[in-house]
Write a protein that binds this DNA or RNA. Structure first.
Lengths: 187, 187
DNA sequence: GTCTATATGGTGATAGAC
DNA sequence: GTCTATCACCATATAGAC
């Protein structure tokens, strides 16, 4: 096993802390301490704390879709793909003990004060909506008679609601609920 | 018009800043500057910044239900009450230019590191769910054949999803969408 | 009750040796 | 590329005069 490079260790440590503690509650000193790196080295790789935030967002965005591809595996039936999406969002919550969606968290903390954050989050959610619409388009080839845009939005909003609610409740009940509802939407 | 007391001015100013900028991004110095109060006076009324957070949460919780009562006015038909709830959440978003739900924001920023926050937010959302169930119980007296708990959860999750999504998108499209869906759920 | 002055420690960021 | 030492500033909180 190759030794992890300093830069990668910084990103990994910072990402973990930003997610668990929040961006503003995480200091540069804590990052360098936990990454076991000198502060001079950090500023050699990243120009500012905001640059580190940028790296965090890009990392999470990339890993989100990579993780979803793994979850979906070689599932083919469109309806099962939708279920896999719900299971994936649930799994992310379970694995983080319901710490919440990275993107909702960061925009909730920083608002639109940081244009970088607004853009990445908006783009990330838009991609998910498009993905749902594409899956429903495959589904509709067989079944027809589906208002794709409308059902896609319905599914998307239920998932977002379940993620937020499970973060507050610290349990996955909402996911069980939306899975039943959404299966009812896809006859 | 009576002059606003120092304590009330502090709470109002702090609440506004916590909401707009976030809790951690708001310093005591900024609060005393904008409230036009001395720091000694602030610590005379509040024992710590966390105590100020406590006052903020209580204020928002109280005002949320007061505002909803005003919105609902003397509307009687249960279905219209549900629509009034959606309109109320939409109005809160419109009025704040989509700054988001106070409670989702604060729990997203502070997570469960602060037990006070977790408790207040969880309680606030639970109250809303109960309220929806009560309205649906009234509705069911006439129409019957409704799975109240299930429909209540469906409505609640759609509203939460719409609030989060409208915060990201900076527009109210999601509310128009869920209004149609929810009216379809109540025949 | 409100004020000013101050204590103490943490923040992001830079300079320059090796 | 990595390090140590240090900067200027801001944070929360306290002491004590009026």
């Amino acid at each position: 096993m190759k030794k992890e490079k300093a830069k990668d260790r910084i990103i990994r440590t910072a990402s973990d802390l930003f997610y668990r503690q929040g961006f503003n509650s995480t200091g540069i000193n804590q990052i360098i301490a936990e990454a076991d790196i000198a502060i001079g080295s950090l500023y050699n790789h990243f120009s500012s704390k905001n640059d580190l935030l940028r790296a965090y967002l890009i990392k999470e965005e990339t890993e989100w879709f990579k993780g979803f591809e793994e979850q979906i595996g070689n599932i083919d039936p469109p309806k099962d793909k939708i279920v896999a999406l719900i299971n994936y969002r649930k799994k992310l919550q379970d694995d983080s003990t319901f710490a919440g969606c990275h993107f909702i968290k960061i925009i909730s903390e920083l608002g639109d004060s940081n244009p970088l954050v607004s853009d990445v989050v908006k783009n990330h959610k838009e991609k998910q909506k498009i993905m749902i619409r594409e899956i429903l388009t495959q589904y509709d080839v067989e079944k027809k008679s589906l208002d794709i845009d409308s059902v896609a939005e319905h599914i998307f909003l239920l998932i977002e609601g379940a993620v937020v609610t499970s973060t507050i409740d610290k349990n996955a009940d909402a996911f069980a609920h939306i899975k039943k509802i959404i299966q009812g939407l896809l006859p």
